[in-house]
Amino acid sequence: MLSDPWNRPELNDLRSILESIGKSDEDHNRNSERLELSVPAEMTTLRGNTISAMTREISRTGIGLLHKGMISPGEVTVRMASDTREFEYRVLIEWCRPCDDGMYLSGGRFLSQKTTTF
């Protein structure tokens, strides 16, 4: 897995951790239906730091992420891409907690979206 704690995680590392976490049977009292979504993403903080991430789930109102390093609650920009489009969202990270191998789970709600076609 990850030998150097300061290296950016590889996609395989992120997928492996997502698989090891599994789904929660707990009811989280959510207003919007969540869909599993496991795609590479990138977060940029207001300070300009870029963090590699993997999406975990998405809904109409928010997104769950897996990444290396603690993120303080606050606004970030999340970027994801498909073969034909790039998606950019402003997200208010509301929580962040540690999980396996020095990785963190976080979740936030969408503030706005900008879509760019390649």
Rank of each mutant, 00 (worst) to 15 (best):
A81C: 11
I63W: 00
L35F: 15
G108A: 10
T61Y: 00
E26R: 14
I17D: 01
A53T: 12
R109P: 05
V76R: 06
P73C: 07
V91C: 07
G102E: 10
T117K: 14
S24W: 02
T55A: 13
G74D: 05
L66K: 02
S24D: 13
T77V: 15
N7R: 09
E94M: 12
G102R: 02
E88Y: 06
P98S: 14
N31P: 04
R34H: 09
M103K: 02
R97C: 01
E94I: 05
L2M: 12
I51M: 05
I93P: 00
E75V: 11
N49E: 11
L2V: 09
F110R: 08
M54K: 01
M54G: 02
K68V: 00
G62S: 11
T44P: 02
N29R: 15
T115Y: 07
C96R: 00
R109I: 14
L105W: 07
V76S: 04
N12M: 08
N29P: 07
E94G: 11
T84H: 06
R8N: 11
P73V: 03
G62D: 08
E19I: 06
M103A: 09
L11I: 03
P5K: 03
M80A: 15
G22M: 09
L14I: 12
Q113K: 14
S82W: 13
V78P: 13
T44A: 03
V78R: 14
E75I: 09
L2F: 08
R56C: 02
G107I: 03
T61E: 04
S3A: 13
S59Q: 03
T61V: 12
T116N: 09
E36D: 11
L105R: 06
I21V: 13
E33P: 05
T55R: 04
D4I: 02
T55W: 06
T116V: 04
M70R: 11
M80E: 14
E26A: 11
P98Q: 15
D4N: 15
D13Q: 13
G48E: 13
G107P: 02
H67R: 05
R56F: 01
E42K: 12
P40A: 14
L66T: 01
S32C: 15
M103T: 02
V76N: 02
A81N: 15
H67P: 03
M43A: 05
P40Q: 11
N49D: 13
Q113S: 13
S32L: 13
K68N: 02
D25F: 10
N49Y: 05
T115I: 14
S59D: 04
G69R: 11
E86T: 10
Y104Q: 00
T115Q: 10
R30P: 01
N31L: 15
T44H: 00
E86Y: 06
